[in-house]
Nucleic acid binder design. Structure first.
Lengths: 110, 110
DNA sequence: TCATGATATGTCAGAACGGACATATCGCGC
DNA sequence: GCGCGATATGTCCGTTCTGACATATCATGA
């Protein structure tokens, strides 16, 4: 159960830096984190473009301003579920989400 | 907080049927569920194509056979996080995931 | 400078999710 | 029919996630 330990590390605050395999981070975990980061960034981008406040988005999601802030900060305690709900809450389509995910890969191909 | 109530309903066992707005399901929630279903289906598809058993995939994820079964059944107690991890655990790339998500929209455009 | 609106950060109790295990059901060759 | 591997289903109980709240920081304008 090495995976378990990694998860713990990840949650403990990632640090991430430049999203590499700075520790023994496996390929699959790297992809997962990158995806999360990309989607979180997408939320902020979309929200600002629409000039919606965090509080307003929170209202739409039945959530709170503080949680939205954490979503955008890609806080380790935020689930993908919530991030995705946020994107859809901002009117994103599946195609939009797909685009964000595909770009996640490219942006870190370094 | 109407959203709250909907979430409850959703979790209580979706039923879903044909993924429509059978109740007041908002557009954003419909998209979210469809995405989840599409990705879950993607896991099964990929796994079978690679002739990997649920038990083996579970091992790779540090999870259990029963949970993998639930993932593929799109059980309400399974998070997107776990589904995505599964896909990546099966070697899917961001592009693969993006493709699955985009298709989710089409397949229910009814 | 001080308001004031928007964000960020920390914490907590309760809800949701997780792996694990038991057990049931299926599919298929014999 | 029996055996057997793969899946499904249901339930624990410890961990994680979440909304809510308090509070702090930031930005901008007066």
């Amino acid at each position: 159960m090495k995976k378990q330990k990694k998860q713990r590390l990840e949650r403990a605050g990632w640090v991430v830096g430049d999203t590499g395999d700075f520790l023994g981070l496996s390929e699959q975990e790297r992809r997962f984190i990158e995806t999360k980061l990309a989607l979180a960034a997408g939320v902020r981008r979309r929200r600002k473009l629409q000039r919606v406040t965090q509080a307003e988005l929170a209202r739409r999601l039945g959530s709170s301003q503080s949680r939205v802030a954490k979503i955008e900060a890609a806080d380790a305690t935020v689930s993908l579920d919530l991030i995705l709900r946020s994107l859809f809450g901002l009117g994103a389509t599946s195609a939009d989400v797909a685009r964000l995910i595909r770009q996640a890969e490219r942006s870190s191909a370094a």
